[in-house]
Each structure stands twice: as structure tokens, then as C-alpha cells.
Computed example of a mutant assay.
Amino acid sequence: MTEPEQTVEITSEAELRQLLGPVAPAAAKKERQSLHEHHRQWIARSPLCLIGTSAADGSCDVSPKGDPPGFVKVLDDTTLVIPDRPGNRRTDSYRNILANPRVGLLFLVPGRGDTLRVNGRARLLRDAPFFDGMTVKGHRPAIALLVETEQIYFHCSRAFLRSGLWQTHTWDPDAAPSRASISKSLEKPEKSLEELERYYGPQYGQNDLYA
């Protein structure tokens, strides 16, 4: 990458603090290692969790996991479990965890600007007594991610307020290329655009998501 001559890089934490200032006392004190009842309630209402992982070489991945609210189960004050569901089978995050168990989770609740952040250590399980309780529409997960919490805190809503994410009048789903166009250009060039438009049409979200 060719950088402009005016590019000035930050190379130390001291320089970073000089630019941004110290951590606010309230922000520094809000971390917990164990789950409070408010954390449990938030996880029970969240239908979407983003999982951040890093491989042994430092390469990173963020993977969304979604299901009906409450799909992530809290086992005790420091342990939660996330079931796997059928997807593209790339297993990027799972392969990362086998090499580096550190994970970062971000739980979202629709309409809320604040989010719940959970950092900890993860393990992949192929079976456990609680797998039966994570069955949805007859699909019992083949894999689950067990996370032992180390750092838990609520994140403020400024990013969501600035972005207007939940403000429906700002939504413009046609501003970006359609899913069919993206697939035609980058993933399935052998398919016709008409075929892909039918595939990704209104019935796409009504297909059996758990098959």
C-alpha cells in the first residue's frame, strides 16, 4: 500500500493516551468477571451475537451467530454456551479457537443502542448434557462453543446513535448491490443473474434454516 506523505502513525500507548485522554473512572470500573443478573437478562433477550476470534498467526475473524432470543445459554456465573447452526461450513472462527482460545463476544438487542461485551476463553464441544436444551425446530447442534468469561461490561450507545442503525427512516437496503448481484460477481459467476434473483428472492428467508 502506498501511503500519502502526510500519514502520521501512532506507535505507543502513551501517544494514544496523549491524543484521547485517560479512561473515565466509571468506564474503568464497570468491568466484571462474573455475570450479573442484568447480563443474564440481556443475553436471554439477544437474538444476535458477534464472535471475534484470532488465529495463531494473528489473522482475525468476526462471525455472526443468530437464533431466537435466548439461544445462548448461561450455565453459571462465569460460563455460557453458543450452539452452532447450519451455515457455509467455512469454520473460520472454530479453526481460530483451536489455535487460540481467546474470544470476544458482542450481544445485540434490536432497538437498543447499548451492547454487552464479553471476553474470555472458549472451547469447542461435540456433545454435552445441555445440547438437548439447544434444539431448535428439531435441529440439535453438532457443535457448541463453551465460553468461560473473563471480562464483561455494557458498552454505551454512542456508535448506534451516530449511525442511526435502528432508525427505520434512514434504512435504504437498495443502496448497495443486491445479494444476487454480489453472488454473480464474486461467488457464482456460472449462474445467471435471473437464477440467483430467484434463489435469493422472498422465499430465501423462509427456507428451512436448520436443515
Rank of each mutant, 00 (worst) to 15 (best):
R40A: 08
W42H: 09
R90L: 07
S183H: 12
V103P: 06
L105M: 05
A44P: 01
Y94G: 00
S192N: 04
E37G: 09
R158A: 15
S181L: 10
Y204Q: 07
I10F: 12
K73Q: 14
D114V: 02
L106G: 10
L146E: 15
A122P: 04
M1G: 15
Y210F: 14
K73W: 00
F160D: 13
R85S: 15
L209S: 01
G111V: 04
P202I: 07
P22R: 08
P177S: 00
Q18P: 02
D92R: 10
L75K: 05
A99L: 11
R126C: 01
E190I: 01
G87R: 08
T53L: 09
I97Y: 02
A44K: 03
H39C: 02
S34A: 11
S93T: 11
P22V: 11
N88W: 05
G205V: 01
L50H: 12
E9S: 05
E194A: 15
R179V: 12
R162A: 15
L186R: 08
A27I: 15
N119W: 01
K188G: 06
A144C: 13
R198K: 05
I10A: 12
T168N: 09
W171H: 15
Y199A: 10
L209E: 00
F71L: 08
E31V: 13
L80Y: 06
F130M: 12
L19W: 13
A28M: 03
P69F: 12
I82F: 07
G164F: 11
R90T: 09
E190A: 03
G201V: 06
L16F: 15
L196C: 07
L19A: 14
K188L: 15
K29F: 08
P173W: 03
A14L: 09
G104D: 02
D76T: 09
Q33F: 04
P141N: 08
V74L: 07
K65P: 12
F107G: 05
S54K: 13
E31F: 12
G70S: 01
L116F: 03
E15G: 04
V8G: 02
L209M: 00
G133K: 09
N207A: 10
T149W: 11
G164K: 10
D77R: 14
Q167A: 04
A144V: 04
T168H: 11
K188T: 13
N207Y: 00
L16K: 13
M134I: 08
G205W: 11
P173Q: 02
A180Q: 03
K137G: 02
A211Y: 00
E37Y: 03
E37S: 14
R32I: 09
A24Y: 05
P173T: 03
P25R: 13
L105F: 03
R162P: 14
N96S: 04
D127N: 01
V81K: 00
P25M: 14
R126M: 03
P177R: 03
L20M: 12
P202G: 06
R90S: 04
G104K: 06
F71H: 11
D208W: 04
P173E: 10
G104Q: 06
R198E: 11
D127R: 11
G52A: 15
T79W: 05
G164P: 11
P83N: 11
S185G: 09
P69D: 13
E195T: 07
S157Q: 15
R140K: 14
L209H: 00
I143G: 11
I10D: 13
P25C: 13
V8Q: 01
Y204M: 10
D84C: 07
K30A: 12
P173H: 01
L116N: 10
Q203A: 09
A99V: 06
G120H: 06
